[in-house]
């Protein structure tokens, strides 16, 4: 296959970037998209040019590192896949392919196609956990969990934190990501204890990071490589409303006798 690539090149966080043309030939339809990028980069290195920087690691669609905005879609054409699972057989010989980084104020570009997604980590740090120390938990079968709840929690927990939902959203909203974690934990009895604190803290952090609001467009759900449902957003909104109306944080108390 012969292709015309148009790739976003940006030297550093403070530099201006631009689209640069790279013709490439001899691409096999069986290559993954990232293997095509490897071929390009080896050619650039041999010519003495700078290779295109991009995040990638597991190359089997689970680590959430890869993050290319291809022809106007996060992770390119195809549904339920990450960039590393996109194969060149999805394109036709002679195609022009536009490759850009995620575009969102909360995900600043570091270099070329690499963005800073640490805002997601900070949303999890705000409350995306169950407060239990290592040591002596109760027996795993002490609390039976309805299989349906457990399965729905799992569906939400499959989020890989890639950020495609933000990249797809016209508002650069992180509602799908945040609601997936809120749902995963609040659907389980272990996670219900902290659910009010959690939803308030995580949404607060999401807003502080500069993500936009949700206007129910649904683009996030379409582009999510793991098929996370926007039902989770509805669930989170309901919890948030309940928590915001009824809840006041407990007062700090003394140290005991």
């Amino acid at each position: 296959m012969n292709l015309k690539l148009k790739i976003w090149r940006q030297k550093g966080p403070k530099d201006n970037g631009k689209m640069v043309d790279y013709p490439i030939s001899g691409i096999s339809p069986d290559m993954s998209f990232l293997e095509m990028m490897d071929v390009l980069n080896d050619q650039l290195v041999e010519k003495g040019d700078l290779p295109v920087a991009f995040d990638h690691d597991c190359r089997e669609g689970i680590c959430g590192s890869c993050s290319m905005y291809i022809n106007g879609e996060p992770h390119g054409p195809g549904r339920g896949i990450t960039t590393c699972q996109l194969h060149m057989r999805s394109f036709a010989d002679g195609d022009t392919i536009h490759i850009e980084p995620w575009r969102a104020a909360a995900f600043p570009v570091i270099k070329d196609l690499v963005t800073d997604r640490s805002a997601f980590d900070r949303i999890i740090q705000a409350g995306g956990f169950i407060s239990v120390n290592s040591g002596s938990p109760v027996d795993a079968n002490a609390i039976p969990i309805d299989k349906h709840d457990s399965d729905r929690a799992f569906d939400a927990a499959t989020c890989i934190g890639c950020g495609a939902c933000v990249a797809a959203c016209k508002n650069a909203s992180a509602m799908l990501f945040t609601s997936a974690k809120v749902s995963h934990l609040s659907l389980l009895p272990q996670g219900q204890v902290e659910s009010r604190d959690r939803v308030l803290a995580m949404i607060n952090q999401m807003d502080e990071e500069g993500f936009g609001n949700c206007t129910n467009t649904g683009a996030c759900e379409v582009e999510c490589p793991k098929g996370i449902s926007i039902e989770n957003i509805a669930r989170m909104n309901r919890q948030y409303l309940g928590a915001a109306i009824s809840y006041s944080p407990p007062k700090a108390t003394g140290g005991g006798d």
Binding site: F129, I130, V132, S134, P137, V138, D139, A140, I143, P144, I145, K147, S150, D151, A153, F154, A157, H184, L185, L188, Q190, G191
Partner: peptide, 13 residues
């Protein structure tokens, strides 16, 4: 297994 279930790991049931 006990520790992971306590953390909310959704094992198959």
């Amino acid at each position: 297994i006990d520790q992971c279930v306590a953390q909310g790991v959704p094992f198959a049931r």
